[in-house]
């Protein structure tokens, strides 16, 4: 692992799928958490239905009915892993009738030009 430590790449995780309907959001988050140990320059982008991953007040308890694992709190824990660059596509958020107040974590809202610029700076793009 020693030689890895010398290389710092820009990793972008692109999240475009809603949570619970499929496993992608949860398993993407698992990669982010493991990846945090590698000390790379990490960013997360939430685009299209991926924005729904950050919706406040997710309740998946057995009492509520879904009976699935609620992983939404993990987004708030990312900061402790030094994963602090969370970007949300403005148009995707607007189209879904959401605002920053609906989101469970602090994010930076990017317009198309800024999002495109951020993507262009990445070395490794992992899409889920």
């Amino acid at each position: 692992m020693e030689e890895d430590e010398e290389i710092i790449k820009k990793f972008l995780y692109v999240n475009r799928k809603a949570p619970y309907g499929t496993v992608y959001a949860l398993e993407s988050l698992e990669v982010v958490l493991i990846g945090a140990a590698f000390d790379q320059d990490v960013s997360l982008a939430f685009i299209d239905d991926g924005v729904y991953q950050l919706k406040k007040d997710q309740n998946t308890s057995v009492d509520a009915g879904a009976g699935m694992k609620n992983f939404s709190k993990t987004y708030r824990a990312l900061e402790a892993y030094d994963v602090e660059k969370l970007y949300v596509d403005k148009k995707s958020m607007d189209e879904r009738g959401l605002s920053v107040d609906d989101l469970l974590v602090d994010v930076e809202i990017l317009d198309e030009a800024k999002m495109a610029e951020m993507m262009g700076q990445q070395d490794v793009v992992l899409s889920f």
């Binding site: 790449k9 493991i34 590698f38 070395d123 992992l126 899409s127």
Partner: peptide, 20 residues
């Protein structure tokens, strides 16, 4: 093996291509 192998692939490869 673990997910770390994916991150390592991202670090060590010059290009990472995703099929999904």
């Amino acid at each position: 093996s673990g997910l770390g192998q994916l991150i390592e692939a991202g670090i060590q490869s010059e290009r990472l291509v995703v099929f999904g």
